[in-house]
Amino acid sequence: MAAIDPSNQGLRLATRYAVLTLIAVIFIFPLVFMVMSSFKPDLQLLRDTGSFRAFLPVGDLSLNNYAAAFDRAPVATFVFNSVLVTGLTVLLSLFFCSLAAFSFVFLNWRGRNIALSIIIATLIVPFETIAIPLLLLVSKLPWIGWEGLEWGWLNSYRVQIIPWIADGLTIFLFVQYFKDLPRELIEASRVEGASWWQIYIKVVMPLSGPVLATAAILKFLVMYNQYLWPLIVVQEESYRPVMVGLQYFFQLNIAWGEVMAYLTLITVPVLAFYLVLQKAFIASIASTGVKG
């Protein structure tokens, strides 16, 4: 059989890699453009945009744009704020949304279907359309802090975190995944006398590596790219996140090199997060051995 012929095998392998690489090129080029441009002075950067030079480290390269970016804006503060807000929201979201989805899929309770329908309907509401009502709402909410009861959530981390913890998409993601888990496993544990909480922690969560990783990545992206919401609820620079910070670079004459340097800097945390999770994601599949 031809498939056993080693040279043929090698050819097929090479074709596979060629296809994978070709697709990879299509997907990676704007990032290469962004990173390469961040090392170039503005005029050269703009001249290069029409040709393949845009993707090559050619011409007058330096770290000047990075230095200038740090001079222009408190980049570290913005990245810190975004990572903090995003990290906390992702953690809280994974917990509350998976818990709710667990209840929707595995438990029977009155009102379950209506509640789930409402949650799925919220998927349809684009955030832009509720931003102003939400702003009016959070500006009047109470909070108990170090100084006792206060009113209004503006200018804080909580206003950037709490409204975003639960969302229809994340719950829906968990629901669809949990539906594929074997119910016998849960019912067996129930027969053995495990509490629902124990089943959630000890049976369902260990099987949920892939969906946790997926939900975490998606939530991370949504949170890290927040713009409109922090813009309207945060007036103090010390709480501003990265995408609002991007506006610091759009002056009348845009310094494109600095923009690219800033974009490169703020993309690093997302990429790192994805790469780390991807590893966890693979590991979780290997360890659970997947169920059927």
Partner: peptide
Amino acid sequence: FAFPGFGLITLFIV
């Protein structure tokens, strides 16, 4: 189990 998630969605979206 469902209340925290559902409650947050109700308050901040619905």
